[in-house]
Design a protein around this nucleic acid. Sequence first.
DNA 1: GAGTGGTCTAGACCACGGT
DNA 2: CCGTGGTCTAGACCACTCA
Lengths: 242, 242
Amino acid sequence: MPAAPDQRLPMYQRLRDALAERISLRDWAPSVAIPSEAELAAEHRVSIGTVRKAIDLLVAEGQLERFQGKGTFVRRPTFDTSLFRFFRFQQASGQRRIPESSILKRGLAKAPHAAAEALGLASGVSAIHISRLRRLDGKPLLVEDIWLPEKPFLPLLELEPSRFGALLYPLYETQCGQVVASADETLTAEAIGAKDARLLGMPEGAPAIVIERLARGTDRHPLEWRRSRGPASQFRYHIEIR
Amino acid sequence: MPAAPDQRLPMYQRLRDALAERISLRDWAPSVAIPSEAELAAEHRVSIGTVRKAIDLLVAEGQLERFQGKGTFVRRPTFDTSLFRFFRFQQASGQRRIPESSILKRGLAKAPHAAAEALGLASGVSAIHISRLRRLDGKPLLVEDIWLPEKPFLPLLELEPSRFGALLYPLYETQCGQVVASADETLTAEAIGAKDARLLGMPEGAPAIVIERLARGTDRHPLEWRRSRGPASQFRYHIEIR
DNA sequence: GAGTGGTCTAGACCACGGT
DNA sequence: CCGTGGTCTAGACCACTCA
Protein backbone atom coordinates (compact mmCIF):
# COMPACT_ATOMS: atom_id res chain seq x y z
CA MET A 1 0.00 0.00 0.00
CA PRO A 2 2.59 2.65 0.91
CA ALA A 3 3.92 3.63 -2.51
CA ALA A 4 7.63 4.18 -2.88
CA PRO A 5 8.32 7.79 -1.96
CA ASP A 6 8.73 9.81 -5.12
CA GLN A 7 12.22 11.29 -4.96
CA ARG A 8 11.05 14.31 -6.93
CA LEU A 9 8.69 15.31 -4.12
CA PRO A 10 9.96 17.93 -1.69
CA MET A 11 11.50 16.54 1.46
CA TYR A 12 8.77 17.99 3.69
CA GLN A 13 6.08 16.29 1.61
CA ARG A 14 7.76 12.92 1.87
CA LEU A 15 8.18 13.48 5.58
CA ARG A 16 4.49 14.38 5.88
CA ASP A 17 3.59 11.12 4.15
CA ALA A 18 5.89 9.13 6.42
CA LEU A 19 4.37 10.68 9.53
CA ALA A 20 0.82 10.28 8.18
CA GLU A 21 1.47 6.59 7.72
CA ARG A 22 2.70 6.15 11.27
CA ILE A 23 -0.41 7.96 12.46
CA SER A 24 -2.70 5.69 10.46
CA LEU A 25 -0.85 2.63 11.77
CA ARG A 26 -1.60 3.94 15.26
CA ASP A 27 2.07 3.93 16.19
CA TRP A 28 1.47 6.82 18.51
CA ALA A 29 -1.27 6.89 21.14
CA PRO A 30 -3.22 10.17 21.10
CA SER A 31 -2.45 10.77 24.76
CA VAL A 32 1.34 10.76 24.45
CA ALA A 33 3.41 13.26 22.49
CA ILE A 34 4.99 12.15 19.25
CA PRO A 35 8.80 12.51 19.06
CA SER A 36 9.98 16.11 19.37
CA GLU A 37 10.81 18.15 16.30
CA ALA A 38 14.52 17.82 17.08
CA GLU A 39 14.27 14.03 17.35
CA LEU A 40 12.35 13.73 14.08
CA ALA A 41 14.89 16.01 12.39
CA ALA A 42 17.78 13.80 13.54
CA GLU A 43 15.94 10.58 12.71
CA HIS A 44 15.15 11.68 9.15
CA ARG A 45 18.38 13.60 8.58
CA VAL A 46 16.68 16.89 7.80
CA SER A 47 16.71 20.28 9.46
CA ILE A 48 14.19 21.20 12.10
CA GLY A 49 12.57 23.73 9.76
CA THR A 50 11.66 20.96 7.33
CA VAL A 51 10.13 18.91 10.14
CA ARG A 52 8.11 21.94 11.18
CA LYS A 53 6.79 22.36 7.68
CA ALA A 54 5.74 18.70 7.46
CA ILE A 55 4.00 18.97 10.82
CA ASP A 56 2.36 22.24 9.70
CA LEU A 57 0.65 20.29 6.94
CA LEU A 58 -0.62 17.58 9.24
CA VAL A 59 -1.85 20.17 11.73
CA ALA A 60 -3.70 21.97 8.91
CA GLU A 61 -5.24 18.65 7.91
CA GLY A 62 -6.37 18.07 11.47
CA GLN A 63 -4.27 14.96 11.98
CA LEU A 64 -1.94 16.46 14.59
CA GLU A 65 -2.25 19.04 17.35
CA ARG A 66 0.54 21.16 18.78
CA PHE A 67 0.80 22.42 22.35
CA GLN A 68 3.60 24.74 23.21
CA GLY A 69 5.75 23.37 25.98
CA LYS A 70 3.97 20.00 25.96
CA GLY A 71 4.55 18.48 22.55
CA THR A 72 2.71 17.43 19.40
CA PHE A 73 -0.11 14.90 19.62
CA VAL A 74 -2.17 12.72 17.32
CA ARG A 75 -5.59 14.32 17.16
CA ARG A 76 -8.89 12.50 17.46
CA PRO A 77 -11.68 14.04 15.39
CA THR A 78 -14.06 16.05 17.56
CA PHE A 79 -16.79 16.32 14.92
CA ASP A 80 -17.14 19.97 15.77
CA THR A 81 -17.47 20.80 12.09
CA SER A 82 -20.31 18.33 11.66
CA LEU A 83 -23.46 19.59 9.97
CA PHE A 84 -25.42 18.36 12.98
CA ARG A 85 -23.99 21.28 14.87
CA PHE A 86 -26.35 23.53 12.92
CA PHE A 87 -29.51 22.08 14.38
CA ARG A 88 -30.29 24.80 16.84
CA PHE A 89 -31.69 23.12 19.85
CA GLN A 90 -34.08 25.83 21.08
CA GLN A 91 -32.32 27.04 24.22
CA ALA A 92 -29.15 27.85 22.28
CA SER A 93 -27.33 29.06 25.35
CA GLY A 94 -23.94 28.66 23.72
CA GLN A 95 -22.43 25.43 24.96
CA ARG A 96 -22.73 22.12 23.14
CA ARG A 97 -25.27 19.61 24.31
CA ILE A 98 -25.54 15.96 23.44
CA PRO A 99 -29.10 14.79 22.81
CA GLU A 100 -30.34 11.73 24.67
CA SER A 101 -30.93 8.69 22.58
CA SER A 102 -33.40 5.81 22.62
CA ILE A 103 -33.03 2.69 20.52
CA LEU A 104 -36.12 1.93 18.45
CA LYS A 105 -34.80 -1.15 16.71
CA ARG A 106 -31.61 -3.20 16.65
CA GLY A 107 -30.93 -6.29 14.52
CA LEU A 108 -29.72 -7.81 11.29
CA ALA A 109 -31.39 -6.77 8.05
CA LYS A 110 -30.75 -6.43 4.37
CA ALA A 111 -28.88 -3.18 3.88
CA PRO A 112 -30.57 -0.65 1.63
CA HIS A 113 -28.79 0.17 -1.58
CA ALA A 114 -27.28 3.47 -0.42
CA ALA A 115 -25.88 1.91 2.76
CA ALA A 116 -24.48 -1.16 1.02
CA GLU A 117 -22.80 0.94 -1.62
CA ALA A 118 -21.27 3.35 0.87
CA LEU A 119 -19.99 0.50 3.04
CA GLY A 120 -18.69 -1.45 0.08
CA LEU A 121 -20.96 -4.45 0.73
CA ALA A 122 -22.36 -6.70 -1.96
CA SER A 123 -25.93 -5.65 -2.59
CA GLY A 124 -28.44 -7.78 -0.73
CA VAL A 125 -26.01 -8.73 2.02
CA SER A 126 -27.29 -8.38 5.56
CA ALA A 127 -25.86 -5.84 7.96
CA ILE A 128 -26.43 -4.55 11.46
CA HIS A 129 -29.21 -2.00 11.65
CA ILE A 130 -29.79 0.38 14.52
CA SER A 131 -32.67 2.82 14.51
CA ARG A 132 -32.91 5.45 17.18
CA LEU A 133 -34.66 8.62 18.19
CA ARG A 134 -32.70 11.46 19.69
CA ARG A 135 -34.25 14.01 22.00
CA LEU A 136 -33.19 17.09 23.88
CA ASP A 137 -35.08 17.76 27.10
CA GLY A 138 -37.63 15.24 25.93
CA LYS A 139 -38.28 17.08 22.66
CA PRO A 140 -37.65 14.88 19.59
CA LEU A 141 -34.88 16.21 17.34
CA LEU A 142 -33.60 13.52 15.02
CA VAL A 143 -34.46 10.06 13.79
CA GLU A 144 -31.45 8.04 12.75
CA ASP A 145 -30.91 4.85 10.78
CA ILE A 146 -27.47 3.40 11.28
CA TRP A 147 -25.93 0.58 9.24
CA LEU A 148 -22.79 -1.35 10.17
CA PRO A 149 -20.98 -4.25 8.51
CA GLU A 150 -21.47 -7.49 10.41
CA LYS A 151 -17.82 -8.36 10.66
CA PRO A 152 -16.31 -6.19 13.35
CA PHE A 153 -19.56 -4.99 14.88
CA LEU A 154 -21.29 -8.23 15.91
CA PRO A 155 -20.74 -7.57 19.63
CA LEU A 156 -23.27 -4.75 19.35
CA LEU A 157 -26.03 -7.28 18.71
CA GLU A 158 -25.48 -8.90 22.08
CA LEU A 159 -25.07 -5.77 24.12
CA GLU A 160 -28.02 -4.91 26.36
CA PRO A 161 -29.88 -1.94 24.84
CA SER A 162 -29.64 -0.14 28.16
CA ARG A 163 -25.87 -0.07 27.77
CA PHE A 164 -26.07 1.98 24.59
CA GLY A 165 -25.37 5.51 25.76
CA ALA A 166 -25.97 8.75 23.92
CA LEU A 167 -22.83 8.26 21.82
CA LEU A 168 -22.05 5.25 19.66
CA TYR A 169 -18.45 5.91 18.67
CA PRO A 170 -16.97 5.18 22.12
CA LEU A 171 -18.92 1.91 21.98
CA TYR A 172 -17.41 1.04 18.61
CA GLU A 173 -14.03 1.53 20.19
CA THR A 174 -14.49 -0.36 23.44
CA GLN A 175 -16.72 -3.18 22.13
CA CYS A 176 -15.42 -3.62 18.58
CA GLY A 177 -11.96 -2.08 18.50
CA GLN A 178 -12.91 0.33 15.72
CA VAL A 179 -11.84 3.98 15.83
CA VAL A 180 -13.68 6.56 13.75
CA ALA A 181 -11.02 8.86 12.32
CA SER A 182 -12.90 10.85 9.69
CA ALA A 183 -16.29 11.14 8.02
CA ASP A 184 -18.09 12.47 4.97
CA GLU A 185 -21.41 14.21 5.38
CA THR A 186 -24.02 15.10 2.78
CA LEU A 187 -26.95 17.44 3.37
CA THR A 188 -30.22 17.42 1.51
CA ALA A 189 -33.81 18.29 2.35
CA GLU A 190 -37.01 16.42 1.68
CA ALA A 191 -40.63 16.19 2.76
CA ILE A 192 -40.87 14.11 5.93
CA GLY A 193 -42.65 10.76 5.68
CA ALA A 194 -45.65 9.79 7.81
CA LYS A 195 -43.76 7.52 10.18
CA ASP A 196 -40.87 9.89 10.88
CA ALA A 197 -43.30 12.79 11.14
CA ARG A 198 -45.08 10.98 13.96
CA LEU A 199 -41.80 10.26 15.76
CA LEU A 200 -40.62 13.84 15.45
CA GLY A 201 -43.97 15.41 16.22
CA MET A 202 -44.11 17.39 12.99
CA PRO A 203 -46.75 17.49 10.25
CA GLU A 204 -46.39 14.94 7.48
CA GLY A 205 -44.82 16.43 4.36
CA ALA A 206 -43.12 19.28 6.24
CA PRO A 207 -39.54 19.94 5.13
CA ALA A 208 -36.84 17.93 6.90
CA ILE A 209 -33.09 18.25 6.75
CA VAL A 210 -31.49 14.92 5.82
CA ILE A 211 -27.86 14.31 6.71
CA GLU A 212 -26.07 11.21 5.52
CA ARG A 213 -22.76 10.35 7.12
CA LEU A 214 -20.15 7.82 6.11
CA ALA A 215 -17.69 7.35 8.99
CA ARG A 216 -14.25 5.96 8.24
CA GLY A 217 -11.54 4.24 10.25
CA THR A 218 -7.90 5.24 10.51
CA ASP A 219 -7.18 3.63 7.13
CA ARG A 220 -10.13 5.46 5.58
CA HIS A 221 -12.04 2.21 5.13
CA PRO A 222 -15.78 2.71 5.67
CA LEU A 223 -17.10 1.74 9.10
CA GLU A 224 -20.60 3.12 9.51
CA TRP A 225 -23.26 4.71 7.36
CA ARG A 226 -26.13 6.64 8.84
CA ARG A 227 -29.00 8.75 7.64
CA SER A 228 -30.54 11.27 10.03
CA ARG A 229 -33.62 13.43 9.66
CA GLY A 230 -34.74 16.43 11.65
CA PRO A 231 -37.10 19.38 11.32
CA ALA A 232 -35.78 21.96 8.84
CA SER A 233 -37.31 24.75 10.90
CA GLN A 234 -34.63 24.26 13.53
CA PHE A 235 -31.68 24.12 11.16
CA ARG A 236 -29.43 26.98 10.04
CA TYR A 237 -26.07 26.37 8.42
CA HIS A 238 -23.63 29.19 8.01
CA ILE A 239 -20.43 29.66 6.00
CA GLU A 240 -18.15 32.52 5.11
CA ILE A 241 -16.88 33.11 1.58
CA ARG A 242 -13.63 34.94 0.99
CA MET B 1 -9.69 52.44 12.45
CA PRO B 2 -6.29 50.75 12.16
CA ALA B 3 -5.45 50.11 15.80
CA ALA B 4 -1.89 50.72 16.93
CA PRO B 5 0.04 47.52 16.27
CA ASP B 6 0.41 45.62 19.50
CA GLN B 7 4.14 45.28 20.10
CA ARG B 8 3.56 42.01 21.91
CA LEU B 9 2.25 40.40 18.73
CA PRO B 10 4.74 38.36 16.71
CA MET B 11 6.40 40.26 13.88
CA TYR B 12 4.75 38.11 11.20
CA GLN B 13 1.30 38.85 12.65
CA ARG B 14 1.89 42.59 12.63
CA LEU B 15 3.20 42.31 9.10
CA ARG B 16 0.11 40.34 8.08
CA ASP B 17 -2.09 43.09 9.49
CA ALA B 18 -0.10 45.78 7.68
CA LEU B 19 -0.42 43.93 4.38
CA ALA B 20 -4.11 43.19 4.97
CA GLU B 21 -4.73 46.89 5.44
CA ARG B 22 -2.99 47.79 2.20
CA ILE B 23 -5.12 45.16 0.46
CA SER B 24 -8.34 46.56 1.88
CA LEU B 25 -7.28 50.09 0.88
CA ARG B 26 -6.87 48.73 -2.65
CA ASP B 27 -3.27 49.88 -2.81
CA TRP B 28 -2.49 47.01 -5.14
CA ALA B 29 -4.50 46.18 -8.25
CA PRO B 30 -5.32 42.45 -8.49
CA SER B 31 -3.68 42.25 -11.90
CA VAL B 32 -0.22 43.41 -10.84
CA ALA B 33 2.08 41.60 -8.44
CA ILE B 34 2.56 43.05 -4.97
CA PRO B 35 6.18 43.83 -4.03
CA SER B 36 8.42 40.77 -3.98
CA GLU B 37 9.22 39.00 -0.74
CA ALA B 38 12.73 40.45 -0.76
CA GLU B 39 11.40 44.00 -1.20
CA LEU B 40 8.86 43.60 1.61
CA ALA B 41 11.58 42.16 3.83
CA ALA B 42 13.82 45.17 3.23
CA GLU B 43 10.97 47.64 3.58
CA HIS B 44 9.85 46.25 6.93
CA ARG B 45 13.34 45.40 8.18
CA VAL B 46 12.59 41.73 8.73
CA SER B 47 13.98 38.55 7.24
CA ILE B 48 12.46 36.99 4.15
CA GLY B 49 11.24 34.02 6.21
CA THR B 50 9.08 36.31 8.31
CA VAL B 51 7.59 37.88 5.20
CA ARG B 52 6.84 34.41 3.85
CA LYS B 53 5.03 33.50 7.05
CA ALA B 54 2.90 36.65 6.92
CA ILE B 55 2.04 35.98 3.29
CA ASP B 56 1.29 32.33 4.16
CA LEU B 57 -1.46 33.57 6.47
CA LEU B 58 -3.01 35.85 3.85
CA VAL B 59 -2.87 33.08 1.26
CA ALA B 60 -4.60 30.71 3.70
CA GLU B 61 -7.25 33.38 4.26
CA GLY B 62 -7.78 33.69 0.53
CA GLN B 63 -6.66 37.32 0.36
CA LEU B 64 -3.51 36.66 -1.68
CA GLU B 65 -2.45 34.20 -4.36
CA ARG B 66 1.08 33.09 -5.14
CA PHE B 67 2.43 32.08 -8.55
CA GLN B 68 5.93 30.73 -8.71
CA GLY B 69 8.06 32.78 -11.03
CA LYS B 70 5.38 35.46 -11.47
CA GLY B 71 4.78 36.95 -8.08
CA THR B 72 2.10 37.31 -5.41
CA PHE B 73 -1.26 38.86 -6.28
CA VAL B 74 -4.30 40.23 -4.51
CA ARG B 75 -7.06 37.68 -4.97
CA ARG B 76 -10.64 38.44 -5.92
CA PRO B 77 -13.16 36.05 -4.40
CA THR B 78 -14.35 33.48 -6.93
CA PHE B 79 -17.33 32.32 -4.86
CA ASP B 80 -16.36 28.77 -5.66
CA THR B 81 -17.12 27.75 -2.08
CA SER B 82 -20.62 29.23 -2.29
CA LEU B 83 -23.48 27.01 -1.22
CA PHE B 84 -25.10 27.65 -4.60
CA ARG B 85 -22.49 25.38 -6.05
CA PHE B 86 -24.39 22.45 -4.57
CA PHE B 87 -27.49 22.90 -6.63
CA ARG B 88 -26.89 20.16 -9.12
CA PHE B 89 -28.13 21.41 -12.41
CA GLN B 90 -29.33 18.19 -13.98
CA GLN B 91 -26.69 17.63 -16.66
CA ALA B 92 -23.86 17.78 -14.12
CA SER B 93 -21.19 17.29 -16.73
CA GLY B 94 -18.50 18.65 -14.47
CA GLN B 95 -17.82 22.22 -15.52
CA ARG B 96 -19.46 25.22 -13.90
CA ARG B 97 -22.36 26.90 -15.62
CA ILE B 98 -23.91 30.26 -14.93
CA PRO B 99 -27.70 30.27 -15.01
CA GLU B 100 -29.43 32.86 -17.18
CA SER B 101 -31.35 35.51 -15.34
CA SER B 102 -34.52 37.48 -15.96
CA ILE B 103 -35.56 40.47 -13.91
CA LEU B 104 -39.07 40.19 -12.51
CA LYS B 105 -39.14 43.45 -10.61
CA ARG B 106 -36.82 46.38 -9.99
CA GLY B 107 -37.53 49.45 -7.88
CA LEU B 108 -37.52 51.15 -4.51
CA ALA B 109 -39.38 49.56 -1.64
CA LYS B 110 -39.41 49.30 2.11
CA ALA B 111 -36.75 46.77 3.02
CA PRO B 112 -38.00 43.77 4.99
CA HIS B 113 -36.70 43.43 8.50
CA ALA B 114 -34.04 40.80 7.74
CA ALA B 115 -32.60 42.83 4.86
CA ALA B 116 -32.58 46.11 6.75
CA GLU B 117 -30.89 44.55 9.74
CA ALA B 118 -28.23 42.81 7.67
CA LEU B 119 -27.47 45.98 5.72
CA GLY B 120 -27.45 48.14 8.81
CA LEU B 121 -30.35 50.31 7.66
CA ALA B 122 -32.89 51.93 9.96
CA SER B 123 -36.03 49.81 9.92
CA GLY B 124 -38.66 51.11 7.53
CA VAL B 125 -36.15 52.86 5.30
CA SER B 126 -36.54 52.26 1.57
CA ALA B 127 -33.98 50.36 -0.43
CA ILE B 128 -33.41 49.08 -3.93
CA HIS B 129 -35.18 45.81 -4.58
CA ILE B 130 -34.43 43.47 -7.47
CA SER B 131 -36.35 40.28 -7.95
CA ARG B 132 -35.22 37.80 -10.54
CA LEU B 133 -35.69 34.27 -11.79
CA ARG B 134 -32.69 32.21 -12.77
CA ARG B 135 -32.91 29.38 -15.28
CA LEU B 136 -30.59 26.84 -16.82
CA ASP B 137 -31.52 25.73 -20.31
CA GLY B 138 -34.88 27.29 -19.77
CA LYS B 139 -35.57 25.24 -16.63
CA PRO B 140 -36.26 27.43 -13.55
CA LEU B 141 -33.72 26.95 -10.77
CA LEU B 142 -33.80 29.82 -8.32
CA VAL B 143 -35.92 32.80 -7.38
CA GLU B 144 -33.95 35.63 -5.84
CA ASP B 145 -34.83 38.76 -3.89
CA ILE B 146 -31.96 41.21 -3.74
CA TRP B 147 -31.79 44.31 -1.52
CA LEU B 148 -29.28 47.13 -1.85
CA PRO B 149 -28.81 50.39 0.05
CA GLU B 150 -29.89 53.38 -2.00
CA LYS B 151 -26.70 55.34 -1.53
CA PRO B 152 -24.12 53.86 -3.85
CA PHE B 153 -26.46 51.75 -5.94
CA LEU B 154 -28.88 54.34 -7.37
CA PRO B 155 -27.44 54.00 -10.90
CA LEU B 156 -28.98 50.54 -11.04
CA LEU B 157 -32.46 52.08 -11.02
CA GLU B 158 -31.78 53.90 -14.26
CA LEU B 159 -30.05 51.11 -16.09
CA GLU B 160 -32.10 49.46 -18.85
CA PRO B 161 -33.21 46.02 -17.65
CA SER B 162 -31.79 44.49 -20.81
CA ARG B 163 -28.31 45.55 -19.68
CA PHE B 164 -28.52 43.46 -16.54
CA GLY B 165 -26.55 40.34 -17.47
CA ALA B 166 -26.45 37.01 -15.69
CA LEU B 167 -24.10 38.38 -13.04
CA LEU B 168 -24.71 41.41 -10.84
CA TYR B 169 -21.34 41.86 -9.15
CA PRO B 170 -19.53 43.12 -12.26
CA LEU B 171 -22.38 45.64 -12.58
CA TYR B 172 -21.91 46.81 -9.01
CA GLU B 173 -18.30 47.43 -9.88
CA THR B 174 -18.67 49.21 -13.21
CA GLN B 175 -21.88 51.16 -12.44
CA CYS B 176 -21.50 51.84 -8.73
CA GLY B 177 -17.80 51.45 -7.93
CA GLN B 178 -18.48 48.76 -5.33
CA VAL B 179 -16.34 45.62 -5.13
CA VAL B 180 -17.66 42.54 -3.39
CA ALA B 181 -14.76 41.10 -1.41
CA SER B 182 -16.41 38.53 0.86
CA ALA B 183 -19.79 37.18 1.83
CA ASP B 184 -21.65 35.25 4.52
CA GLU B 185 -24.14 32.60 3.52
CA THR B 186 -26.79 30.87 5.59
CA LEU B 187 -28.68 27.76 4.51
CA THR B 188 -32.12 26.72 5.69
CA ALA B 189 -35.02 24.81 4.19
CA GLU B 190 -38.71 25.57 4.18
CA ALA B 191 -41.94 24.72 2.39
CA ILE B 192 -42.17 26.72 -0.83
CA GLY B 193 -44.91 29.36 -1.04
CA ALA B 194 -47.59 29.45 -3.75
CA LYS B 195 -46.07 32.26 -5.76
CA ASP B 196 -42.51 30.91 -5.83
CA ALA B 197 -43.82 27.42 -6.48
CA ARG B 198 -45.48 28.68 -9.62
CA LEU B 199 -42.31 30.43 -10.78
CA LEU B 200 -40.17 27.38 -10.12
CA GLY B 201 -42.64 24.88 -11.48
CA MET B 202 -42.80 22.84 -8.29
CA PRO B 203 -45.76 21.84 -6.13
CA GLU B 204 -46.76 24.29 -3.43
CA GLY B 205 -45.45 23.26 -0.01
CA ALA B 206 -42.63 21.14 -1.44
CA PRO B 207 -39.30 21.55 0.37
CA ALA B 208 -37.09 24.36 -0.88
CA ILE B 209 -33.50 25.22 0.00
CA VAL B 210 -33.22 28.82 1.14
CA ILE B 211 -29.86 30.57 0.96
CA GLU B 212 -29.37 34.03 2.39
CA ARG B 213 -26.23 35.90 1.45
CA LEU B 214 -24.77 39.07 2.88
CA ALA B 215 -22.08 40.38 0.52
CA ARG B 216 -19.45 42.74 1.88
CA GLY B 217 -17.05 45.26 0.40
CA THR B 218 -13.31 45.44 0.89
CA ASP B 219 -13.78 47.06 4.29
CA ARG B 220 -16.27 44.39 5.28
CA HIS B 221 -19.14 46.87 5.27
CA PRO B 222 -22.37 45.26 4.02
CA LEU B 223 -23.24 45.90 0.37
CA GLU B 224 -25.99 43.52 -0.67
CA TRP B 225 -28.40 41.13 0.98
CA ARG B 226 -30.18 38.46 -1.00
CA ARG B 227 -32.46 35.53 -0.34
CA SER B 228 -32.63 32.74 -2.92
CA ARG B 229 -34.91 29.73 -3.09
CA GLY B 230 -34.63 26.60 -5.18
CA PRO B 231 -36.01 23.05 -5.20
CA ALA B 232 -34.46 20.92 -2.46
CA SER B 233 -34.61 17.87 -4.70
CA GLN B 234 -31.76 19.26 -6.75
CA PHE B 235 -29.54 20.22 -3.84
CA ARG B 236 -26.80 18.14 -2.20
CA TYR B 237 -24.17 19.70 0.02
CA HIS B 238 -21.10 17.75 0.98
CA ILE B 239 -18.38 18.23 3.59
CA GLU B 240 -15.55 16.17 5.00
CA ILE B 241 -14.87 15.91 8.73
CA ARG B 242 -11.40 15.15 10.01
C1' DG C 1 15.88 23.69 35.10
C1' DA C 2 15.14 20.71 31.31
C1' DG C 3 12.44 20.03 27.38
C1' DT C 4 8.88 21.40 24.34
C1' DG C 5 7.04 24.15 20.51
C1' DG C 6 7.03 29.37 18.71
C1' DT C 7 9.47 33.08 16.51
C1' DC C 8 13.09 34.96 13.73
C1' DT C 9 17.30 35.25 11.15
C1' DA C 10 20.49 35.00 7.01
C1' DG C 11 21.87 32.72 4.07
C1' DA C 12 21.92 28.70 -0.12
C1' DC C 13 20.14 26.56 -4.10
C1' DC C 14 16.11 25.10 -7.13
C1' DA C 15 12.02 25.63 -10.40
C1' DC C 16 9.44 28.42 -13.03
C1' DG C 17 7.96 32.58 -16.09
C1' DG C 18 9.09 35.98 -18.85
C1' DT C 19 12.74 38.72 -21.71
C1' DC D 1 19.10 35.71 -18.79
C1' DC D 2 17.02 37.76 -14.57
C1' DG D 3 13.50 37.96 -11.13
C1' DT D 4 10.00 35.51 -8.93
C1' DG D 5 8.42 32.26 -5.39
C1' DG D 6 9.66 27.24 -3.47
C1' DT D 7 12.65 24.41 -0.72
C1' DC D 8 16.05 23.66 2.80
C1' DT D 9 19.54 24.58 6.19
C1' DA D 10 21.59 25.67 10.90
C1' DG D 11 21.55 28.13 13.97
C1' DA D 12 19.54 31.85 17.98
C1' DC D 13 16.42 33.18 21.45
C1' DC D 14 11.64 33.23 23.57
C1' DA D 15 7.38 31.28 25.97
C1' DC D 16 5.34 27.71 27.97
C1' DT D 17 4.76 23.17 30.81
C1' DC D 18 6.03 20.15 34.19
C1' DA D 19 8.69 18.02 37.61
